[in-house]
Design a protein around this nucleic acid. Structure first.
Lengths: 234, 234
DNA sequence: GCAAAAGTGTTGAGCTTACACCCATGT
DNA sequence: ACATGGGTGTAAGCTCAACACTTTTGC
């Protein structure tokens, strides 16, 4: 059995919940993914996940962090975890390259500076994707949905302090279905995932009761309830 | 950034539920993992997962299948899926080697021929393991436990036809806690994971009502209920 | 008849969604 | 006052664990 040298690359699927950019319309926040547009062949003009070749003395995680630093302020990336490996021999042209994919999460209010070729795209409406990067996004999204149920991973999408309605919007965007703020509160409080700060937000210009502010109890990834579920309505 | 060539290996954590080998005692089936003992340094005498270097024209899955064929009859491996990548630069001596790990499952009654250096070890009592193979087994076990709840993955551990008490023993061994046969039946039947064959087994020598036989409806991996849970007692 | 093993019925607990109702604030 | 958004209480449903009880066999 011949062993040619294989390249190894890492690719990151970085998500953030952001307001849509429709100016007039009522903009609901939606889940977005960070992509850059290829200026050169192959697959010129199509959109790619950030990443690149693995360095000699790096493990995968260090490599992702290094490569992401070229696109976003790393301090904004609150969570990073390994996903699947894509290894089809012909998945990219040129030397045989194995790709390890990662899931990255950026909290909501942050708006990192982006290079000119790089943009946030709504996950529900992806542009033409290079190579096998489309399925990678899908895979990452599935993982995110699953982990929102049974871990505290929401901390990596939410601001430091937030009203419950804000958190509901974030969960709703990430899960892809409506979420009841009432129940979200009880579920997350019972598991001690979120706690009240004691302070309240000010009401908007149209009035309304001021919202109590919450924060995530832990800002480190934790499995909170192995058997929990946030089910879609109906 | 220098890019040295990195090797890539695949390693398989292959599980089977087997009777313990205590001769006199009441032998309860337990979850076992397939290991081979290293005859040469490094880590001579310690136990390793089956696997080896990735070939030039293989994707990861083909490579695992090829390498496993040296240890067990491949037709016995009813399920194979990707797990995590281990990439610490110094995880093994010599050239930098990245390991992709896999979970493999072998149905219960099969007893494949094994090479002389290869044996089944109970997961609850592992021998000294080479390199980072110990944590790999643990990771695979966690994945198996999780998937038994919300997928039909049990088909890959169970015989083609089986009594419910047999299935209970298998689930119990794999999950690591007692399982009630009554409830297992209802849970798996409601989800159409198992169906009755219509036939029954003969009673043992000590009498008892003959058991109805079941089979898995699908012998292909399937997510049966995203939010299901088989909880430990208590 | 009696022990052993399998299968059924029933209860109760836990968690979740759904929704009606009450509270606090701005104009 | 009233509209607006936030928060609480409560009911109903689903799923699962627990366990007593019935059925069917061998000796």
């Amino acid at each position: 059995m011949a062993h040619t040298n294989t390249e190894h690359e890492v690719l990151a699927v970085v998500f953030q919940v952001r307001q849509g950019e429709a100016p007039g319309a009522r903009r609901k926040p939606a889940l977005h993914v960070l992509l850059w547009q290829r200026a050169l062949d192959p697959e010129r003009g199509k959109w790619s996940l950030p990443g690149g070749r693995l360095g000699a003395d790096e493990d995968l995680t260090s490599s992702v962090r290094r490569q992401l630093a070229e696109k976003v302020d790393l301090r904004q990336v609150a969570h990073l975890e390994q996903l699947a490996v894509f290894s089809a021999p012909d998945r990219v042209p040129g030397p045989r390259t194995i790709a390890s994919t990662f899931l990255g999460l950026v909290p909501s209010p942050a708006t990192p500076e982006l290079p000119p070729d790089t943009r946030w795209h709504p996950v529900s409406d992806l542009p033409p994707m290079a190579f096998d990067h489309g399925p990678m996004v899908e895979h990452a999204h599935n993982r995110l949905v699953a982990k929102l149920s049974y871990t505290n991973i929401g901390f990596a999408l939410a601001p430091g302090e937030f009203a419950l309605s804000t958190l509901r919007d974030i969960y709703s965007a990430a899960l892809g279905h409506p979420v009841d703020a009432t129940n979200l509160q009880r579920v997350l409080e019972r598991r001690h995932v979120i706690t009240r700060t004691g302070t309240t937000a000010r009401s908007g210009r149209s009035g309304g009761r001021p919202a109590a502010l919450y924060r995530f109890a832990d800002s480190r990834y934790r499995v909170t309830d192995e058997f929990a579920a946030l089910r879609p309505p109906g």
